[in-house]
């Protein structure tokens, strides 16, 4: 027990900070973990998505709308959009933190990143739901 105990004599970190394990970011490994979870989801969803889009793009409107309004196409598309939006936000956050050093510019860029990814997701989900639910209307 004593061997792996943190040396509190030489560290200014409090026992509570150590127990929480969230570090300087306050978020611990959450960013890393969310990036990996959405990466796995993206790998699983990307090929069904390519098939759906390949069946749709360039087809007459009625055919494209019929395929996209199929429950499987609508649900897979919605899941894909949610997963890539989270993944995009986390990935671009790293890029911004690497290259944008001014404090104001960094906050503005991170804010724009969140707004952009949420807007892309909202617009896509609105369209997917509208197509998917249109046979019911």
């Amino acid at each position: 027990m004593a061997e792996n105990r943190f040396d509190t004599g030489t560290s200014i970190r409090t026992p509570m900070a150590r127990a929480r394990g969230l570090g300087a970011s306050g978020g611990g490994t959450e960013h890393f973990w969310q990036q990996r979870i959405t990466a796995v989801a993206n790998v699983l969803l990307v090929f069904p998505m390519i098939i759906i889009l390949a069946m749709t793009v360039g087809r007459p409107y009625e055919d494209a709308a019929a395929i996209m309004s199929h429950p499987l196409a609508a649900i897979l598309s919605a899941l894909f959009v949610i997963s890539i939006a989270i993944h995009m936000r986390l990935g671009m956050q790293i890029v911004i933190e690497d290259y944008v050093h001014g404090k104001g510019a960094k906050v503005a860029a991170l804010l724009a990143n969140t707004f952009f990814t949420v807007a892309v997701a909202a617009a896509s989900l609105y369209a997917i739901l509208k197509i998917g639910l249109s046979p019911l209307l």
Partner: peptide, 19 residues
């Protein structure tokens, strides 16, 4: 990754165009 980030706009446009 950055290209795909902006490429998501094309995907959103395609969904919206059908809708």
């Amino acid at each position: 990754g950055v290209a795909l980030y902006f490429g998501a706009l094309v995907l959103a446009w395609f969904f919206l165009s059908i809708a």
